[in-house]
Computed example of a mutant assay.
Amino acid sequence: MRYVDGKAAEGVFVQEVDEEVRRVKQHDETRREYMTLAMELKRQRQEGIAEGTRNMILAMLQKGFSAEIIADCAQTSVEYIIELGKKNHLL
């Protein structure tokens, strides 16, 4: 746990882990793969948030909330709420 907290590597196993971590950090292809993966995960997370927000807006429209209240809750524009409502035959 000390190693994870940034302390010096102690013990044979932790030193071996430290050496492998340093080796991987130096490997350009592995770094690129990691960055690509990180960017893809970020994109997927953003898409998930957007989909969740859209679903929340649609549910609120179905329950009869006003576009103004929904826009305030979803931190988006009234115009977007109205457009989404019309596309989904809720307005």
Rank of each mutant, 00 (worst) to 15 (best):
Q26R: 15
E33N: 03
R23H: 01
E33F: 03
H89E: 15
M56Y: 04
R54K: 09
K7L: 09
N88A: 07
I57R: 04
Y80M: 08
I81K: 03
S77L: 06
V21C: 01
S77K: 02
E51Y: 10
E29F: 04
E40W: 02
N55R: 15
D18H: 13
M56N: 15
L90R: 02
M60K: 07
D5N: 15
V78M: 10
E51A: 10
N88Y: 00
L90C: 14
R54H: 14
L37S: 11
L61M: 09
K87P: 08
G64W: 07
R54E: 04
L58N: 05
N55V: 11
G48H: 05
E19H: 09
E19V: 10
R43A: 01
K25Q: 04
R43F: 00
K63V: 08
G52K: 02
A67K: 05
I49F: 00
A59E: 15
K42G: 05
E79V: 01
T53W: 06
V12R: 10
G11P: 05
V4N: 14
E68Q: 10
Y80K: 06
E51F: 03
Q26E: 15
G6Q: 03
E10N: 07
E83V: 12
K7T: 11
V14Y: 00
M39I: 08
Y34K: 07
T30N: 00
M60Q: 01
D28Q: 05
E10Q: 10
A50G: 11
A9W: 00
L84K: 02
C73E: 14
T53H: 11
K63H: 11
I82A: 09
D18E: 15
G64E: 10
D18K: 13
N88F: 04
E20Y: 10
E68H: 08
I69M: 13
G52L: 01
G11W: 09
L84H: 01
Y80N: 09
A59C: 12
V12T: 12
E10F: 11
Q26Y: 13
G6I: 03
V24R: 07
H27Y: 12
G48C: 00
Q15H: 11
T53V: 11
S77M: 06
I49K: 01
V21G: 01
R43G: 05
E47H: 02
R31F: 04
R43E: 02
R54D: 02
Y34I: 11
T53D: 06
A71C: 04
A9K: 03
M56A: 12
F65M: 08
V4T: 15
L91V: 13
E19A: 12
E83F: 06
A59H: 12
A74I: 04
M39C: 09
R22I: 13
R2E: 13
E51H: 09
T53C: 13
A74F: 04
L61N: 05
L37P: 13
V14L: 01
E68G: 08
E79K: 03
E19P: 09
E68C: 04
G48V: 00
N55G: 15
E40K: 02
